[in-house]
Design a protein around this nucleic acid. Structure first.
Length: 717
DNA sequence: TGTGTCACG
DNA sequence: ACGTACGTGACACAA
C-alpha cells in the first residue's frame, strides 16, 4: 500500500530532547519559534479532538519525527492550524502503515487465505466437518454503490471459521487470486447453506450473500452474537471488536478506519493483511458464541432469556431478513407528484410569512427564536424552544404561528419522505428496509433505510406511496390497546381487567375513573360537542398514553395544556381509581432501585443501576415503570410472528413490515375472510393474558392505508 | 459531530 | 429541590 507523504523531515537527525531557542527558531523557519507558533495555535478555538491532534504534532515536530510541509516553508508561511491537522494526518497514516505491517507479521498459524483450488477444497472439507460455522463478509462501495447496502454495494470477500480454522476467501480484490466467484460458490454453496451458522449482525451478512450470490444463510442461521449480546447486557456496545475486548479479554484490535487510510476500500487491502483482519472477525464471532453459550448454560437465572433468544428472537430475526429481502412496492412517480403539491403549499405559506416578517430561514430554530421572541415579542414559554407543541400555545397570539407550524409539517413531509424515499427504490422497483428485530433496549424493533415505522399516519399521502405487488393485496393487522392490556395483566388491576373483559371503551373507562361520571353516561354523550363527558374522555386519552411512560404532572400538563397542579389532581384521581396500577409501578421502581434491574413477562431484562448511579433517578424510575409494559407488548407481537410461521406459507402470505403493535402482510388477492380470521386468531392467541387480546384487520387492495371495508371486499371477491 | 425538531408506536 | 412523560431514526443547521 502506498501512502503519500507531502512533507519533508527537516530534522530527522537532530538529537532528541531539549532544543535551544535558536534551533527552534531555525526550524519554524519564518521568524517565529515553534513554541510561539504552538501557543498561538493553542489559543485558537479548538475542540478537544483538535487539541489532542495539536499536542501530538507538537511532540512529533520537537522530537524530529516529522517536519513542516515543504510548500509552506518555501513560501514563508507561518505554521497554521490547517497545516498542523494535515501533519497529524500524515502521522496517522504512518501509524497505520506500522499497524498493517504488524498485522501481517502477527498472522496466526490457523489463519488461511483461500486463493487456489487446493485451498478451496480444504475449506470445503473444513465446513463439511464442522457442526457450526461462523461467517462474516467484507464489503465495499464503488461509484454509486454503498458498502452497507447489499443492492448497490459489493462483497470484497468473506471469512469462515470452522473448527478453529479461520479462512478468508477474496472475491473482488484488486489483487487477484486463481479463483473466480463462480469457482468459489459452485464449490461452497451446498456446504455453506447446509451447515448451521452463527454471524454477528446476521441480517447484514445474510442479505449480502443472498442478494449478491443467491446463497441462503438464513434458513440455517442458528445464532446472531449481536442478539445474544443484547440478551446478556442491553446497555453495552455491541460492536464485535468491543465485545471481544470486554468479554474475551482479547487484545484490542483496530477497526478498519484505524488501520487503513481514509477512502481506502476493503477490496484494495493487500490479501496478506485482509486475511488477518477478516478471519479475525469470524474467529471473534466463534469465540464469542462459544463463550456466550457457556454463560447461558452455566447460569440457571439465564435459562428463561436463553429460551426467549432461541424460541422467539432468532426465528423472528430470520423472518424479517426474508421480509426485508422481499421488500415492498413503491410508487416513485406518485411520490414526485405529491412532492410537487407539497412544494406549492410551502410556497404559499412562505409568501404569507414573508408578508408578515420579511426574509427568514424557517428551518433555522435560531432565526425563528429571534423573530418570534425578539422582533414580535411573543412570550418565550420554554427556554427559547420553538418546537411545535410550544408554538401550539402561541397560535392565538399572532397569525404567523399557525403558518409556521404548517410550514414545519409540510417541509418535514418533503425532506423526510417524498424527496428521499424515491431514492431508496432498488432495481426491482421495491423498497427494502432494514429491520433490526432487537434494536431497542426494550426489545422492540428498530428499522432504517428507510424507517418504515415512522411513515405518517394522520395524513395518508405517504403511506399511499407503498404498493401491493401485482395480483396481491396488503392487509394490516394491529393489536388494539396492547400496552394497556399488558398493564392490566401485570398490575392485576380489577377495574382495567373488567373493562377489557367486557369490551369497554378504555378512554371512557379512564374518564369515568378520573371524574366520577358514570361510564355509561360518558359513552352516551361523548359525541356531543361541548359536553363535560366529551371533554372528560378527551382528557383521559393522554392519561392512558402517559401512564405507561411513567406519567408526571409536568408531562401531562404539557399534553393537556393545563397547569401542573391541575395535572397532578388528575393523576391522583387516576391512581385512586386504579389502585393496583399505582402499586405495580411503585413495585417496579423498588425493584429497579434495590436490584438494579426490572424484568418483563418473558424474562427480558432492563438494567438501570448505572442510570441511578449517574443521578438520572427520576428518569430511571420512569424507565423502570415503562419497560415491562413496552417490552412485554413487543414480545407478544414477536411470539405472534413465531406462531404464524407454519401458517403463512400455507396461505401464500408474507410479512412485509412491523410497526410495533402491527404487522403488514402481503397476501394473494384471493385470500378468503376465513384465512384472514385465522391470522387474526393466531395473533390474538399468541400469548394468554388475564384479559383478552384483540386485533383489528384492515384490507388495502392496492396502497398501504387505503382501506376498503371488510364487508365490501369479501362480498365482491 | 452534536443539537433541535419531529415522524411513528 | 429538581427536572420530567417511554422507545426509536431522519433531517437541517451550526459549529
Amino acid at each position: 500500500m502506498e501512502i503519500k507523504i507531502e512533507s519533508i523531515s527537516l530534522n530527522r537527525n537532530t538529537s532528541e530532547g531539549l532544543k535551544t531557542a535558536v534551533e527552534k527558531r531555525k526550524e519554524s523557519g519564518v521568524g517565529e519559534t515553534l513554541e510561539e507558533a504552538f501557543s498561538r495555535i493553542y489559543a485558537m478555538k479548538n475542540t478537544d479532538a483538535d487539541r489532542r491532534k495539536i499536542a501530538e504534532v507538537e511532540r512529533a515536530i520537537l522530537s524530529g519525527e516529522i517536519g513542516r510541509e515543504k510548500k509552506q516553508l518555501e513560501s514563508g508561511k507561518k505554521l497554521s492550524k490547517a497545516e498542523v491537522i494535515r501533519l497529524w494526518n500524515v502521522l496517522e497514516d504512518r501509524k497505520k502503515e506500522e499497524r498493517i505491517r504488524h498485522l501481517i507479521e502477527s498472522k496466526p498459524d490457523n489463519y488461511f487465505l483461500v486463493s487456489n483450488a487446493r485451498e478451496l477444497a480444504e475449506l470445503k472439507e473444513s465446513i463439511e466437518q464442522a457442526d457450526i460455522i461462523s461467517v462474516d463478509c467484507e464489503t465495499f462501495g464503488e461509484k454509486d454503490g454503498d458498502q452497507f447496502d447489499p443492492y448497490t454495494g459489493k462483497m470484497a470477500g468473506f471469512s469462515i471459521t470452522a473448527n478453529d480454522r479461520h479462512y478468508y476467501v477474496p472475491l473482488n480484490h484488486t489483487e487477484k487470486t486463481e479463483l473466480s466467484e463462480d469457482d468459489v460458490f459452485s464449490s461452497l454453496k451446498v456446504p455453506l447453506e447446509s451447515t448451521p451458522n452463527v454471524m454477528h449482525n446476521a441480517p447484514f451478512d445474510a442479505k449480502f450473500f443472498y442478494v449478491r450470490y443467491g446463497i441462503d444463510l438464513i434458513t440455517n442461521l442458528y445464532a446472531d452474537t449481536n442478539i445474544l449480546s443484547m440478551a446478556l447486557n442491553e446497555n453495552i456496545s455491541h460492536k464485535l471488536k468491543d465485545l471481544a475486548h470486554a468479554w474475551l479479554k482479547l487484545e484490542d484490535s483496530y477497526p478498519f478506519d484505524k488501520l487503513f487510510s481514509k477512502g481506502y476500500r476493503f477490496n484494495e487491502v493487500p490479501l496478506d493483511a485482509a486475511v488477518v483482519y477478516a478471519a479475525g472477525d469470524t474467529e471473534k464471532t466463534q469465540k464469542l458464541y462459544d463463550w456466550m453459550m457457556g454463560v447461558f448454560d452455566s447460569r440457571e437465572d439465564l435459562s428463561e432469556i436463553k429460551r426467549l433468544v432461541f424460541d422467539v428472537e432468532m426465528p423472528v430475526c430470520r423472518t424479517f431478513i426474508r421480509a426485508d429481502l422481499r421488500g415492498i412496492g413503491f410508487d416513485p412517480k406518485k411520490a414526485i407528484e405529491v412532492d410537487r403539491q407539497f412544494e406549492r403549499e410551502v410556497v404559499e405559506i412562505e409568501k404569507d410569512i414573508h408578508r408578515m416578517v420579511g426574509e427568514i430561514n424557517l428551518n433555522s430554530p435560531k432565526q425563528l427564536q429571534k423573530t418570534l421572541f425578539g422582533e414580535l415579542g411573543l412570550p418565550d414559554l420554554a427556554k427559547g424552544s420553538t418546537k411545535s407543541d410550544v408554538l401550539e400555545k402561541l397560535t392565538q397570539k399572532h397569525p404567523i404561528v399557525p403558518k409556521i407550524i404548517e410550514h414545519r409539517k409540510v417541509t418535514k413531509l418533503r425532506s423526510s419522505f417524498t424527496q428521499p424515499l424515491p431514492k431508496k427504490v432498488k432495481a426491482d422497483g421495491k423498497i427494502h428496509p432494514s429491520h433490526n428485530s432487537w434494536g431497542a433496549v426494550t426489545g422492540r424493533f428498530t428499522c432504517k433505510d428507510p424507517n418504515t415505522q415512522q411513515m405518517p399516519s394522520n395524513r395518508n399521502e405517504i403511506r399511499h406511496l407503498f404498493l401491493a405487488d401485482p395480483g396481491r393485496i396488503l392487509i394490516g393487522i394491529d393489536y388494539s390497546q396492547i400496552e394497556l392490556r399488558v398493564l392490566a395483566h401485570l398490575a392485576n388491576d380489577p377495574v382495567l381487567i373488567r373493562a377489557f373483559k367486557e369490551g369497554r371503551d378504555i378512554h371512557s373507562t379512564t374518564a369515568a375513573q378520573i371524574t366520577g361520571i358514570p361510564y355509561e353516561q360518558i359513552e352516551e354523550r361523548k359525541d356531543i360537542d361541548g359536553t363535560k363527558e366529551q371533554k372528560a374522555r378527551k382528557n383521559a386519552k393522554p392519561v392512558n398514553f402517559g401512564i405507561a411512560y411513567g406519567i408526571t404532572s409536568v408531562g401531562l400538563a404539557n399534553q393537556l395544556n393545563t397547569t401542573k397542579q391541575e395535572a397532578q389532581k388528575i393523576i391522583d384521581s387516576y391512581f385512586k381509581g386504579y389502585p393496583n396500577i399505582k402499586r405495580y409501578m411503585d413495585e417496579q421502581v423498588r425493584m429497579a432501585r434495590t436490584k438494579g434491574y426490572v424484568l418483563d413477562m418473558f424474562g427480558r431484562k432492563r438494567r438501570l443501576a448505572n442510570q441511578y448511579r449517574r443521578g438520572f433517578t427520576g428518569g430511571a424510575d420512569r424507565q423502570a415503570g415503562n419497560f415491562p409494559i413496552q417490552s412485554s407488548a413487543g414480545t407478544i407481537l414477536k411470539k405472534a410472528v413465531v406462531a404464524l410461521e407454519p401458517i403463512l406459507p400455507e396461505l401464500n402470505v408474507n410479512i412485509s413490515l412491523q410497526i410495533h403493535d402491527e404487522l403488514l402482510f402481503d397476501c394473494p388477492a384471493s385470500i378468503t375472510s376465513e384465512e384472514v380470521r385465522l391470522i387474526v386468531d393466531t395473533m390474538e392467541n399468541a400469548h394468554k393474558l388475564v384479559v383478552p387480546l384483540k386485533c383489528d384487520a384492515e384490507i388495502y387492495p392496492n396502497r398501504w392505508a387505503e382501506k376498503v371495508e371488510w364487508s365490501d371486499w369479501f362480498k365482491s371477491s
